[in-house]
Design a protein around this nucleic acid. Structure first.
Length: 607
RNA sequence: GGAGUCUUAGCUCAAUUGGUUAGAGCGCCGCCCUGUCACGGCGGAGGUUGCGGGUUCGAGCCCCGUAGACUCCGCCA
């Protein structure tokens, strides 16, 4: 932009009243401003009316300033100040004064000074609020209905500011690395794989529908085909599935794709980005490179593909200990090709019978037949199964699991996948029961790599993509794919995990038409369907699409962790509740028959 | 679709084994109060205990149903 650009000609203000709302914000004034005149605008955060002198905490987005009304100096203003109530919006002009000796408030940044009100205008009165803004409130419904009030609370405002700073940092880092921010369509095409789509009927094309994007996946790959080389987008994504504390039907991803890359390029880029983000958000310097672990190792050691490595408890294989055991349950599992593994819940021997039952129920829910355990209390092993163990087995267990007084040992004996899953879930619950408190600033970053490409889906009796259908198989495993050993093929896919929360995932993609077609056919998408659903992509791959890949970061979850928020809803301005309802505007809502008719839509709902 | 927890004043919560008129703090309203910052003092208003049914001499409490919220599983990157 040149120095003589036209924007200088635009008037500074169209306000004909020539009123100045502010000279300072409510966090700005300091002792060096004493004696100056100041004008502040904001909300009445609290009032302390002594009958004579009146104090008001005036709040704006930035902070608090105490305003004092003195009847002996400005009687008319003080008179009207008696009528002020919480959350009235006012404009105050007065002199910045040093607070009286001994009345400074060290809790406020502006606590050494106050503004002595000379003039005051009530810009808007407020009714009595439906809930207090100055304390933690449990009723989330009420907060969501009056979200504009909820967001006035300093913690919520801080969350919004943090979110802004994080997104700004992400943009700056990517811009610095030569990425272009490119928008992709919100009205896009429904595809068979993945989550349920939100649909939008097309008025101009009766009987047809757009889908809101689950992610800009195909568009970003086509941008690589288009020679974009380095793309990103702060992208809204939509998935019509059931919600959770960390899941909304619409959410935001930092969506990234680049050409001529390897996974290492993505790791380096994201690590650089997180260094900048954590510096901005917390002012800390995080250590890179992050740890890496294969999916297989994560499942074996932690029973999870997003292991929380802050906790020392790990799953230990004890199959060799019981190779010739008398205990039929363990022997049966081993003889059937399964495994026997154990988890030492250090210090949890004090567990109640009810809690043991809870763990057992949980184990059953995830496919185990039961949950064997040993409590080490008062120098003996209390357990329904220990009588089946030989002395050699006991000694080996003691050694392998480092068993000490007060420990609780939990066993899984079944197929490997079941044992991993069960002990992984049990591990997280056990950690909760132990009530381990860790440093809230602890950051365990982890790349989980070498995910399986495909997973057998029992309900549909078919193979599904673990990541998505465009993920590249590892070069050394392509023979396995050709040999139809689908369960053994590993993918060039990676997740980034922070403190047991998956905050992003990506992959190197397929860029060859024949390999992509092969992948579709394994997933049960026949050639005719491929042409209709993915013809554009397959065609693009025939016109010189470069090798490419990328990643998507879940921004809401990341900001949630940075804000130490308990729910993703606390870092989204206008979130939806458990049932996808936005309570403030009460959406979704019914629409006129006329609107439906224009869209050629009829509801089948029985009322 | 399934499981669990919860629902009492505007807000946060209490109410012994099923027992008299359902309480407290904050907020609100009124009066008083000239240095507070969770200001203080005095007084006051405010309840269909989510809703419907049942058991009982008697239900906020027990039982059945139902609605809503939240958490989790399934589902979902």
């Amino acid at each position: 932009m040149g120095s003589g650009c036209a924007c200088r000609l635009v008037c500074k203000s169209s306000d004909s009243r020539a009123m100045n709302f502010r000279t300072h914000n409510c966090a700005a004034l300091r002792t060096e401003d004493i004696g100056k005149s100041a004008t502040l605008s904001g909300w009445v955060s609290s009032r302390r009316d002594h009958g004579g002198v009146i104090f008001i905490d005036l709040r704006d987005r930035e902070g608090l300033t105490q305003v004092v009304f003195r009847p002996e100096e400005y009687p008319a203003v003080a008179e009207t100040a008696h009528l002020l109530r919480d959350e009235d919006v006012i404009l105050v002009t007065g002199k910045v004064a040093k607070r009286l000796e001994g009345t400074e408030n060290s809790k406020l940044a502006t606590g050494a000074v106050e503004v002595v009100a000379e003039e005051m205008t009530v810009l808007n009165k407020a009714d009595v609020l439906p809930f207090p803004l100055d304390e933690k409130i449990a009723n989330e419904d009420l907060r969501l209905v009056h979200r504009y009030l909820d967001l006035r609370r300093p913690t919520m405002a801080a969350n919004l500011r943090l979110r802004h700073r994080v997104i700004k940092t992400v943009r700056d880092v990517l811009d610095g690395e030569g990425f272009w921010e490119i928008e992709t369509p919100i009205l896009s095409k429904s595809t068979p794989e993945g989550a349920r789509d939100f649909l939008v009927p097309s008025r101009l094309n009766p009987g047809t529908f757009y889908a809101l994007p689950q992610a800009p996946q195909q568009y970003k790959q086509l941008l690589m085909a288009a020679g974009g080389e380095k793309y990103f987008q702060i992208a809204r994504c939509f998935r019509d599935e059931d919600l959770r504390a960390d899941r909304q039907p619409e959410f935001t991803q930092a969506d990234i794709e680049m050409s001529f890359m390897t996974a290492e390029d993505i790791f380096a880029l994201i690590e650089k980005m997180f260094v900048a983000v954590f510096c901005e958000a917390w002012g800390v310097e995080i250590t890179t490179p992050f740890c890496r672990m294969t999916y297989r190792e994560a499942m074996d050691r932690f029973g999870s593909d997003k292991p929380d490595t802050r906790y020392a408890q790990e799953i230990v294989d004890v199959g060799d200990v019981f190779a010739a055991s008398e205990f039929k349950v363990f022997r049966g599992a081993l003889d059937g090709g399964g495994v026997v593994r154990a988890l030492n819940a250090k210090g949890l021997a004090k567990i109640t019978t009810g809690q043991i039952e809870e763990l057992t129920e949980m184990a059953k829910q995830f496919g185990a037949k039961g949950l064997a355990f040993i409590k080490c209390e008062n120098g003996e092993w209390k357990s329904p199964i220990v009588k089946f163990f030989s002395e050699v087995e006991k000694a080996a267990l003691q050694e392998r699991l480092q068993i000490e007084e007060g420990d609780l040992i939990l066993f899984g004996a079944d197929k490997r996948e079941v044992v991993c899953e069960v002990l992984g879930r049990v591990r997280l619950r056990v950690v909760e029961m132990l009530g381990i408190q860790h440093d809230p600033r602890r950051l365990d970053f982890l790349w989980v790599v070498d995910f399986p490409l495909l997973a057998w889906r029992e309900e549909e009796q078919k193979w599904n993509a673990v990541h998505h259908p465009f993920t590249r198989p590892k070069a050394e495993d392509i023979a396995l794919l050709e040999g139809e050993k689908f369960g053994e093929v590993r993918a060039e896919a990676y997740d980034i995990v922070l403190n047991g929360v998956e905050i992003g995932g990506g992959s190197v993609r397929i860029h060859e038409a024949n390999l992509q077609a092969k992948m579709f056919s394994v997933l049960g998408v026949d050639e005719a369907k491929q042409a209709v659903m993915f013809g554009h992509l397959l065609k693009a791959f025939r016109f010189g699409t470069p090798p490419h890949g990328g990643i998507a970061l879940g921004l809401d979850r990341l900001v949630m962790l940075l804000a130490h928020a308990e729910s993703i809803r606390d870092v989204i301005a206008f979130p939806k509740n458990n049932r996808g309802v936005e309570l403030m505007t009460a959406s979704p809502s019914v629409v006129d028959f006329k609107q439906l008719r224009e869209l050629y839509i009829a509801s089948t709902k029985k009322s």
